[in-house]
């Protein structure tokens, strides 16, 4: 997993700096996309969340060394991701349970 010899550490440091620059660029693009006002709300949300996901991948993958981690940690995380996605979808599914005539904006929106 993590670098052990001085040479490997030096190589990792260069990688960390590249990731750092990518994260700053990602932040600038996210804020920039807000100010240019994309044509639709859906597109704005999609762009912002896509960039956030890429940034999250970079932090978790390189700063937290997840791209070269041991199996046991992947096991823990697969379970976590499964449950957290379930958690988010539960709230969305629950919204379809309302009677149609309730004052609830979700009708016809999802």
């Amino acid at each position: 997993m993590s670098a052990t010899t001085p040479d490997e550490v030096h190589k990792s440091v260069r990688k960390y700096l590249a990731v750092f620059i990518a994260l700053i660029i990602g932040t600038v693009i996210t804020v920039g996309a807000y100010y240019v006002h994309l044509p639709s709300v859906a597109m704005t949300i999609a762009v912002a969340l896509l960039i956030a996901s890429v940034k999250a991948f970079l932090v978790a993958g390189f700063f937290m060394h997840l791209i070269s981690e041991k199996k046991m940690i992947y096991g823990i995380l697969v379970a976590t991701v499964f449950f957290v996605i379930g958690l988010c979808f539960l709230t969305i599914w629950s919204m379809h349970d309302f009677p149609a005539n309730m004052n609830h904006s979700v009708t016809g929106q999802m």
């Binding site: 539960l90 709230t91 969305i92």
Partner: peptide
């Protein structure tokens, strides 16, 4: 976060 989604999507 899922509470946020619920509040946001549920807002008129």
């Amino acid at each position: 976060f899922s509470s946020y989604i619920l509040l946001r999507v549920g807002a008129p």
